[in-house]
Design a protein around this nucleic acid. Structure first.
Lengths: 134, 134
DNA sequence: AAGAGAGTTTACGTTTACGTAAAAGGGAAG
DNA sequence: CTTCCCTTTTACGTAAACGTAAACTCTCTT
């Protein structure tokens, strides 16, 4: 059987975040785990959301932005206005991500160039005689 | 002739940041423009650095991290230890960027799927008769 | 019964990256 | 000279995302 519920410490270990952070995401309206008495019980849906939150963070999303996307996703898909709005948001986000990807390509390229330079310099140190051109 | 110096407002307009931000980067040791009296005069090197700072920001670098990279880059390339350290930093940074790129691919994929869903839903609204299957 | 260990609430503290306002210094235009 | 505009310095303010500490509550375990 696949695991179907999680405690806060399980999730915090799996994703390497503190329980404090997870509770904070709940405060901000990004998670809403069930309760068993006072204790929080996380479903698989909660777990997926946590994963999405963290991925969003890695990409520079603010929590409020991620929450807005969740709300849009949960909202009434029948409302035409909502859907158009959602499409706009998707478009904006895509532009940002594509810019980010270009930035990454640029930096990766520069890193490679820098690495080659350093390696060359190291080679010259290790075989200084070669510098004479023989 | 290519432009060779810039004022703070020129740069702030070109890159769409406030002068306040540019001065702040200087406070943090990321820029060190010349002075003409009290006024700041930015060279092309300063301009390049500003561009790099902003790109770093888009990728989630903290200013302190960008500064560290600048310092490494400026530092004594003759010192073997420095060079090894630089290579390590490059490696770390590359791993992070590659993870980020994977995140972006994932999100772009999800955005596409979400967009298709919404567009389908819109089509069904616009041609409800087709739902019957005729 | 008593302690250990995890989880909870409440609330104040902290860091990063600037925003914003106040006060003052040129310089160039009228 | 006065006015206007840009720039500078100084300094306090702020939002986001938690960290950290205090004081409880439960639930076992010994």
């Amino acid at each position: 059987m696949e695991k179907t519920t999680y405690t806060i410490t399980e999730l915090s270990r799996e994703f390497d975040v503190t329980p404090r952070a997870i509770r904070f995401y709940e405060d901000q309206g990004l998670l809403s785990p069930a309760r068993e008495g006072r204790r929080r019980v996380y479903s698989r849906r909660d777990r997926v959301r946590l994963k999405l939150i963290l991925r969003g963070k890695r990409l520079g999303f603010q929590l409020s932005e991620t929450r807005a996307l969740f709300e849009l996703y949960d909202s009434d898909h029948g409302e035409r206005g909502q859907m158009q709005y959602f499409l706009e948001k998707i478009h904006e986000r895509r532009e940002l991500l594509q810019q980010q990807r270009r930035d990454i390509e640029a930096v990766l390229g520069e890193l490679e160039a820098a690495e080659r330079n350093v390696r060359d310099a190291l080679r010259k140190r290790d075989a200084p005689a070669a510098e004479i051109g023989a």
